[in-house]
Protein backbone atom coordinates (compact mmCIF):
# COMPACT_ATOMS: atom_id res chain seq x y z
CA UNK A 1 0.00 0.00 0.00
CA UNK A 2 2.68 2.50 0.98
CA UNK A 3 4.69 1.27 -1.96
CA UNK A 4 1.81 2.10 -4.28
CA UNK A 5 1.51 5.58 -2.78
CA UNK A 6 5.22 6.08 -3.23
CA UNK A 7 4.97 5.11 -6.91
CA UNK A 8 2.12 7.56 -7.45
CA UNK A 9 4.10 10.38 -5.85
CA UNK A 10 7.06 9.62 -8.07
CA UNK A 11 4.82 9.61 -11.14
CA UNK A 12 3.37 13.00 -10.21
CA UNK A 13 6.85 14.45 -9.66
CA UNK A 14 7.90 13.03 -13.01
CA UNK A 15 4.86 14.67 -14.66
CA UNK A 16 5.62 17.99 -12.96
CA UNK A 17 9.25 18.13 -14.04
CA UNK A 18 8.63 16.83 -17.55
CA UNK A 19 6.05 19.57 -18.14
CA UNK A 20 8.29 22.10 -16.39
CA UNK A 21 10.93 21.26 -18.98
CA UNK A 22 8.43 21.53 -21.85
CA UNK A 23 7.18 24.88 -20.51
CA UNK A 24 10.70 26.26 -20.25
CA UNK A 25 11.55 25.33 -23.85
CA UNK A 26 8.32 26.37 -25.61
CA UNK A 27 8.55 29.81 -27.18
CA UNK A 28 5.30 31.30 -28.42
CA UNK A 29 1.91 29.70 -28.72
CA UNK A 30 0.65 26.19 -28.28
CA UNK A 31 1.85 25.08 -31.70
CA UNK A 32 5.46 25.61 -30.65
CA UNK A 33 4.88 22.99 -27.95
CA UNK A 34 4.16 20.12 -30.36
CA UNK A 35 7.77 19.10 -31.22
CA UNK A 36 8.67 19.18 -27.52
CA UNK A 37 5.65 17.05 -26.58
CA UNK A 38 6.66 14.51 -29.19
CA UNK A 39 10.23 14.41 -27.93
CA UNK A 40 9.44 14.26 -24.20
CA UNK A 41 5.98 12.70 -23.79
CA UNK A 42 5.86 10.36 -26.79
CA UNK A 43 9.44 9.27 -27.36
CA UNK A 44 11.13 9.60 -23.98
CA UNK A 45 8.36 8.89 -21.44
CA UNK A 46 5.97 6.96 -23.70
CA UNK A 47 2.95 8.43 -21.86
CA UNK A 48 0.99 8.83 -25.11
CA UNK A 49 1.44 8.03 -28.81
CA UNK A 50 1.68 10.60 -31.56
CA UNK A 51 -1.97 10.19 -32.64
CA UNK A 52 -3.24 10.75 -29.11
CA UNK A 53 -1.20 13.95 -28.89
CA UNK A 54 -2.83 15.21 -32.10
CA UNK A 55 -6.29 14.38 -30.74
CA UNK A 56 -5.52 16.29 -27.54
CA UNK A 57 -4.38 19.18 -29.69
CA UNK A 58 -7.51 19.21 -31.82
CA UNK A 59 -9.70 19.17 -28.73
CA UNK A 60 -7.49 21.61 -26.86
CA UNK A 61 -7.71 23.99 -29.79
CA UNK A 62 -11.48 24.18 -29.85
CA UNK A 63 -12.31 24.00 -26.14
CA UNK A 64 -12.02 26.96 -23.80
CA UNK A 65 -8.57 27.78 -22.54
CA UNK A 66 -5.05 27.95 -23.90
CA UNK A 67 -4.10 25.01 -26.14
CA UNK A 68 -0.86 24.27 -24.29
CA UNK A 69 -2.63 24.16 -20.93
CA UNK A 70 -5.44 21.99 -22.29
CA UNK A 71 -2.93 19.56 -23.76
CA UNK A 72 -0.92 19.39 -20.52
CA UNK A 73 -4.09 18.64 -18.57
CA UNK A 74 -5.06 15.92 -21.07
CA UNK A 75 -1.74 14.09 -20.90
CA UNK A 76 -1.58 14.39 -17.11
CA UNK A 77 -5.17 13.21 -16.59
CA UNK A 78 -4.90 10.23 -18.92
CA UNK A 79 -1.72 9.16 -17.23
CA UNK A 80 -2.35 9.85 -13.55
CA UNK A 81 -5.97 10.93 -13.06
CA UNK A 82 -7.31 14.30 -11.91
CA UNK A 83 -4.28 15.08 -9.75
CA UNK A 84 -2.06 14.23 -12.72
CA UNK A 85 -3.92 16.75 -14.89
CA UNK A 86 -3.47 19.47 -12.29
CA UNK A 87 0.20 18.68 -11.61
CA UNK A 88 1.16 18.54 -15.32
CA UNK A 89 -0.48 21.93 -15.89
CA UNK A 90 1.23 23.46 -12.85
CA UNK A 91 4.54 22.10 -14.15
CA UNK A 92 3.92 23.68 -17.53
CA UNK A 93 3.05 27.15 -16.16
CA UNK A 94 5.76 27.29 -13.45
CA UNK A 95 8.65 28.39 -15.71
CA UNK A 96 6.46 31.13 -17.26
CA UNK A 97 5.56 32.49 -13.85
CA UNK A 98 9.17 32.47 -12.61
CA UNK A 99 10.68 34.00 -15.77
CA UNK A 100 8.03 36.66 -16.32
CA UNK A 101 8.08 37.78 -12.68
CA UNK A 102 11.87 38.21 -12.90
CA UNK A 103 11.61 40.20 -16.14
CA UNK A 104 8.68 42.30 -14.96
CA UNK A 105 10.47 43.33 -11.75
CA UNK A 106 13.57 44.42 -13.71
CA UNK A 107 11.58 46.15 -16.44
CA UNK A 108 10.03 48.66 -14.04
CA UNK A 109 13.53 49.99 -13.28
CA UNK A 110 14.73 50.29 -16.88
CA UNK A 111 11.55 51.32 -18.68
CA UNK A 112 12.31 55.07 -18.43
CA UNK A 113 15.58 54.79 -20.41
CA UNK A 114 15.03 56.25 -23.91
CA UNK A 115 16.78 53.35 -25.73
CA UNK A 116 14.43 50.94 -23.98
CA UNK A 117 11.44 53.01 -25.09
CA UNK A 118 12.65 53.09 -28.69
CA UNK A 119 13.33 49.36 -28.60
CA UNK A 120 9.81 48.64 -27.39
CA UNK A 121 8.28 50.90 -30.02
CA UNK A 122 10.15 48.81 -32.60
CA UNK A 123 9.16 45.55 -30.94
CA UNK A 124 5.49 46.59 -31.10
CA UNK A 125 5.85 46.88 -34.86
CA UNK A 126 7.23 43.34 -35.07
CA UNK A 127 4.41 42.08 -32.83
CA UNK A 128 1.80 43.73 -35.06
CA UNK A 129 3.25 41.92 -38.08
CA UNK A 130 3.32 38.62 -36.15
CA UNK A 131 -0.32 38.98 -35.08
CA UNK A 132 -1.39 39.61 -38.65
CA UNK A 133 0.61 36.61 -39.86
CA UNK A 134 -1.35 34.49 -37.33
CA UNK A 135 -4.62 36.00 -38.59
CA UNK A 136 -3.58 35.29 -42.16
CA UNK A 137 -2.87 31.64 -41.32
CA UNK A 138 -6.22 31.31 -39.51
CA UNK A 139 -8.04 32.79 -42.50
CA UNK A 140 -6.39 30.30 -44.83
CA UNK A 141 -7.27 27.32 -42.58
CA UNK A 142 -10.70 28.21 -41.21
CA UNK A 143 -12.39 30.93 -43.23
CA UNK A 144 -13.08 29.08 -46.46
CA UNK A 145 -16.77 29.68 -47.25
CA UNK A 146 -18.79 32.87 -47.77
CA UNK A 147 -20.69 32.39 -44.51
CA UNK A 148 -17.44 31.93 -42.60
CA UNK A 149 -16.01 35.10 -44.19
CA UNK A 150 -19.14 36.94 -43.05
CA UNK A 151 -18.81 35.55 -39.50
CA UNK A 152 -15.16 36.66 -39.37
CA UNK A 153 -15.91 40.17 -40.67
CA UNK A 154 -18.90 40.68 -38.36
CA UNK A 155 -16.85 39.48 -35.38
CA UNK A 156 -14.10 41.92 -36.28
CA UNK A 157 -16.45 44.87 -36.74
CA UNK A 158 -18.52 44.02 -33.66
CA UNK A 159 -15.50 44.43 -31.45
CA UNK A 160 -13.69 47.27 -33.26
CA UNK A 161 -16.73 49.49 -33.90
CA UNK A 162 -19.24 48.52 -31.24
CA UNK A 163 -17.04 47.16 -28.43
CA UNK A 164 -19.22 44.06 -28.02
CA UNK A 165 -17.90 41.43 -25.59
CA UNK A 166 -15.90 38.56 -27.18
CA UNK A 167 -18.09 36.19 -25.13
CA UNK A 168 -21.27 37.39 -26.84
CA UNK A 169 -19.57 37.11 -30.23
CA UNK A 170 -18.34 33.56 -29.50
CA UNK A 171 -21.74 32.33 -28.34
CA UNK A 172 -23.46 33.88 -31.37
CA UNK A 173 -20.92 32.32 -33.74
CA UNK A 174 -21.40 28.89 -32.15
CA UNK A 175 -25.18 29.19 -32.63
CA UNK A 176 -24.72 30.25 -36.26
CA UNK A 177 -22.46 27.24 -36.70
CA UNK A 178 -25.05 24.81 -35.31
CA UNK A 179 -27.86 26.31 -37.40
CA UNK A 180 -26.14 27.02 -40.70
CA UNK A 181 -22.88 25.11 -41.02
CA UNK A 182 -24.38 21.61 -40.99
CA UNK A 183 -23.99 20.81 -44.68
CA UNK A 184 -20.21 21.14 -44.39
CA UNK A 185 -20.11 17.78 -42.65
CA UNK A 186 -20.97 15.90 -45.83
CA UNK A 187 -18.01 17.37 -47.66
CA UNK A 188 -15.59 16.63 -44.84
Amino acid sequence: MSNKKHGKLRLLLDLYFTFFKIGSMTFGGGYAMLPLLNAEVVEKKKWANEEQILDYYAIGQCTPGIIAVNTSTFVGYNHAGILGGIIATLGFISPSIIIILLIASVLDQVSHISEVKHAFAGVRIAVTALIFSTVFKLIKNNVNTILKVIIAIISFLAIVMFDISPIVISVAAAIVGILFLKEDNKNA
Partner: peptide, 23 residues
Protein backbone atom coordinates in the same frame (compact mmCIF):
# COMPACT_ATOMS: atom_id res chain seq x y z
CA UNK B 1 -18.64 19.96 -34.54
CA UNK B 2 -20.95 22.54 -36.16
CA UNK B 3 -20.61 25.07 -33.36
CA UNK B 4 -16.84 24.80 -33.72
CA UNK B 5 -17.16 25.54 -37.43
CA UNK B 6 -18.85 28.82 -36.54
CA UNK B 7 -16.45 29.58 -33.70
CA UNK B 8 -13.20 29.32 -35.66
CA UNK B 9 -13.94 32.17 -38.11
CA UNK B 10 -15.24 34.29 -35.21
CA UNK B 11 -12.00 33.72 -33.29
CA UNK B 12 -10.12 34.76 -36.43
CA UNK B 13 -12.08 38.02 -36.51
CA UNK B 14 -11.46 38.58 -32.79
CA UNK B 15 -7.70 38.14 -33.13
CA UNK B 16 -7.72 40.45 -36.16
CA UNK B 17 -9.46 43.11 -34.05
CA UNK B 18 -6.72 42.80 -31.42
CA UNK B 19 -4.13 43.16 -34.19
CA UNK B 20 -5.95 46.27 -35.38
CA UNK B 21 -5.72 47.77 -31.87
CA UNK B 22 -1.96 47.27 -31.73
CA UNK B 23 -1.62 48.49 -35.32
Amino acid sequence: QNSLKGLRPAVTGLIASAGFTVL
